[in-house]
Amino acid sequence: TGEEYIAVGDSTAQQVGDLTFKKGEILLVIEKKPDGWWIAKDAKGNEGLVPRTYLEPYS
Rank of each mutant, 00 (worst) to 15 (best):
T1D: 11
T1C: 14
T1I: 13
T1F: 13
G2D: 07
G2A: 11
G2H: 11
G2I: 10
E3M: 11
E3V: 09
E4K: 14
Y5P: 01
Y5R: 01
Y5D: 00
I6G: 01
I6S: 03
I6E: 03
A7R: 01
A7D: 00
A7F: 09
A7G: 02
V8D: 02
V8F: 04
G9A: 15
G9T: 15
G9Y: 15
G9E: 15
G9V: 15
D10E: 07
D10T: 07
D10F: 05
S11G: 08
S11H: 15
T12S: 10
T12R: 11
T12K: 12
T12C: 14
A13V: 08
Q14P: 08
Q14V: 12
Q15V: 11
Q15I: 10
Q15K: 14
V16M: 11
V16T: 11
V16K: 12
V16R: 10
D18R: 15
D18I: 15
D18E: 15
L19M: 05
L19F: 06
T20M: 09
T20N: 09
T20I: 10
F21W: 04
F21H: 00
F21R: 00
K22W: 07
K22S: 08
K23F: 06
K23E: 05
K23Q: 07
K23C: 09
G24S: 03
G24C: 07
G24W: 05
E25F: 05
E25R: 02
I26W: 06
I26R: 06
I26G: 01
I26N: 02
I26T: 04
I26L: 07
L27R: 00
L28P: 00
L28T: 10
L28Q: 07
L28M: 10
L28G: 02
V29H: 00
V29M: 02
V29F: 01
I30A: 02
I30H: 03
I30G: 02
E31R: 10
E31T: 10
K32H: 04
K32L: 03
K32F: 06
K32V: 04
K33R: 14
K33A: 08
K33D: 06
K33C: 14
K33H: 11
P34A: 13
P34M: 10
P34S: 13
D35Y: 05
D35R: 03
D35A: 04
D35M: 04
G36W: 03
G36C: 04
G36R: 03
W37G: 05
W37T: 09
W37F: 12
W37I: 11
W37L: 10
W37H: 08
W38S: 01
W38R: 00
W38M: 04
W38T: 01
W38K: 00
A40G: 03
A40H: 00
A40S: 03
K41V: 13
K41I: 14
K41P: 00
D42Y: 02
D42A: 03
D42W: 02
D42P: 01
A43V: 09
A43G: 10
A43L: 10
A43R: 11
A43T: 10
K44L: 12
K44G: 08
K44V: 08
K44W: 14
G45L: 03
G45I: 01
G45W: 02
N46C: 07
E47R: 10
E47G: 04
G48D: 01
G48E: 01
G48A: 03
G48N: 01
L49I: 09
L49K: 13
L49G: 06
L49S: 08
L49D: 03
L49C: 08
V50T: 03
V50A: 06
V50Y: 02
V50K: 00
V50D: 02
V50I: 07
P51E: 13
R52S: 15
R52V: 10
R52W: 13
R52F: 14
T53Y: 12
T53C: 14
T53N: 13
T53D: 14
T53R: 12
Y54P: 02
Y54V: 11
L55P: 01
L55M: 06
L55S: 01
L55Q: 01
L55V: 06
E56H: 09
E56S: 09
P57L: 09
P57N: 05
P57F: 07
P57D: 04
Y58A: 08
Y58P: 05
S59M: 12
S59N: 13
